[in-house]
Design a protein around this nucleic acid. Structure first.
Lengths: 127, 127
DNA sequence: CGGTATCCAAGCGGATACTG
DNA sequence: CAGTATCCGCTTGGATACCG
């Protein structure tokens, strides 16, 4: 397992928030789980671009931070389900807010991506 | 300069939002600029832990994404000022939201950090 | 099915020195 | 003061194979 070598500074709330939902798949996972997609295999089917390993890593982080909890059914084949904790539920308005802002900005953003090579003529210069 | 080699998928709004404010110092910069701290040297003084170079990188990204704009005064010594664009202003409710959630969660979070080595007894196991 | 081990590429950010 | 060049280490996450 990896071991962090640089201590992080969680002085401001923002850094904590980003620590928790800043991972590449964490917001998606929170969203999926909130919609009732609970089992690892389902989650994986829901995000095929991510490997099992990475999803597990991010699920583990969410679990460690108390955002989700898991139920392990002692059956064969194994069965596991994830749930949002109360804390996780409290994140939903925020993730929706982020999702909405990004969606609103998406048209402009995609335009920018297309025009990447153009000159940066935005800077205002006084003469 | 760095060159991204893996195309990112900006299908959902969330990924766009994280792309824009996900950097280590970007939210801080947005916040500072919104409070009238406009000049690079001021911003640096405001976040001494970050190097000039990194702040510049993140400012540049924010500028490229149209979140901030800059005014270059042709004077000596050089003088530059950053401003939030309309888009940048539209981000403030979101950054405040993130800041607030993180602050609310901070006590629990710090408690978790302290108890890191304890057993993970949260998983519910049915027998 | 769920989870982990191993290996590795890319990204991101820190330190420093330097230019105009 | 503002910005850039260089170098380099840590972290993130992707690919694959394997075990219970």
């Amino acid at each position: 397992m990896y071991e962090k070598k640089i201590p992080k500074d969680f002085d401001c709330g923002m850094s904590i928030t980003l620590e928790i939902i800043g991972g590449k798949w964490k917001p998606c996972l929170i969203d999926s789980i909130s919609k009732g997609i609970r089992r690892p295999s389902e989650l994986h089917r829901n995000h095929p671009e991510a490997s099992k390993r990475v999803l597990n890593l991010q699920l583990k982080e969410l679990e460690d931070y108390g955002v989700i909890s898991k139920i392990i059914y002692p059956v064969l084949p194994p069965k596991v389900e994830y749930f949002l904790t109360e804390l996780g539920e409290s994140l939903l308005p925020l993730t929706r807010h982020m999702e909405k802002w990004g969606s609103d900005y998406m048209p402009v953003f995609n335009e920018l991506q297309r025009n990447k090579s153009k000159v940066d003529a935005e800077a205002v210069v006084f003469g």
